[in-house]
């Protein structure tokens, strides 16, 4: 609510380019999954168009900022916008956490015949079907109610392996790494505020490095699951919730890592960001803290309990 004149924006061709790219992306993705002709080509085309549009769109925003075109009010709009975007991401994860809590609290016990709505096992057995027999309410649940006829049964889960093996437990290391990266990105922010670009670049570089290590370990964990544990997307509700939650989190870490890398490049090669004016970086660091919080939730609800 600053006084004076309002900033009136220009027309822009980027939005409709972005919408068109998005159209190619979804037609391509749908076509690829359904196996129609040219699906993959359209998908790649959409991906390339989207990347280019975003590059030029963001470049324009940065240039406007450097040219001093954006008012204090517009900067505040960006701040609000980023905060609400992160809130929408929180709600996206809430859907998957909600699914996890629901199956653990209701679906799995009921399927095992427990609780108010437990499956009437005797009735099922009288019908001559032994589908659900022997399915027990445990978590992590390895067995599936269909005894592996439609879904596969894993040999092992990613849960806490006991204190003797704790050091070989990748999620623990990932937790340490991601928590440290939240600290390093905060040190980078402090460096910037204190006017030390060197310290900013170093700490930000360290953060990006930790992010890459995290992603590497996550990939190793997935490889381990598929190659040695028999734990896949196809191994019942544990595999489903495990891979979807950690997978979407990993994807968001990847996005956050891209954001921070762009900020690093902007600082190292273009000397962007001032002591009191660096919302681009701040937005990326907010996003980074957000994926960190999601990981803590994951570590607790998916891996530990």
């Amino acid at each position: 609510m600053s006084g004076g004149n309002y900033y009136v924006p220009d027309s822009s061709r980027y939005p409709i380019f972005a919408a068109t790219s998005l159209f190619f992306l979804v037609m391509g993705a749908g076509g690829t999954i359904n196996g129609t002709d040219n699906g993959t080509t359209v998908l790649y085309l959409g991906f390339i168009c989207m990347t280019l549009t975003m590059f030029f769109w963001f470049r324009t925003v940065v240039q406007e900022h450097l040219a001093g075109l954006d008012s204090a009010q517009l900067k505040k709009s960006y701040v609000f916008g980023m905060a609400w975007f992160i809130f929408s991401e929180v709600m996206f994860f809430a859907a998957f956490f909600g699914a996890l809590f629901y199956v653990r609290t209701f679906a799995v016990p009921w399927l095992a015949g427990e609780g108010e709505k437990g499956a009437p096992i005797e009735f099922v057995q009288e019908m001559g079907v032994d589908f659900w027999t022997g399915f027990e309410n445990t978590w992590p649940v390895i067995a599936t109610p269909d005894n592996g006829s439609e879904y596969e049964i894993a040999d092992k889960t990613m849960a806490f392996p006991g204190w003797s093996n704790v050091l070989a437990w990748l999620p623990l290391w990932n937790t340490i790494i991601l928590l440290s990266s939240s600290v390093t990105v905060h040190f980078a922010h402090l460096g910037l505020k204190n006017g030390s670009r060197k310290s900013f670049n170093r700490w930000l570089g360290a953060t990006v490095g930790l992010a890459v290590i995290f992603l590497g370990l996550q990939a190793a964990e997935y490889y381990e699951a598929y190659a040695h544990y028999g734990l896949t997307l196809n191994s019942g509700i544990y595999g489903s919730t495990f891979f979807m939650l950690t997978g979407f989190h990993g994807f968001h870490v990847f996005l956050g890592c891209c954001m921070l890398s762009v900020m690093l490049v902007r600082s190292v090669f273009f000397n962007h960001f001032e002591t009191h004016d660096h919302f681009g970086f701040e937005a990326a660091s907010w996003y980074w803290h957000f994926v960190d919080v999601v990981w803590v939730m994951l570590f607790f609800f998916v891996y530990i309990i």
């Binding site: 629901y102 679906a107 109610p145 006829s149 879904y151 896949t232 997307l233 196809n234 509700i237 489903s240």
Partner: peptide, 15 residues
């Protein structure tokens, strides 16, 4: 191949 909404894999259509 996930089983969020399929009881055979431990999920639930009611979910």
């Amino acid at each position: 191949g996930t089983s969020f909404f399929n009881a055979a894999g431990g999920g639930d259509p009611v979910l």
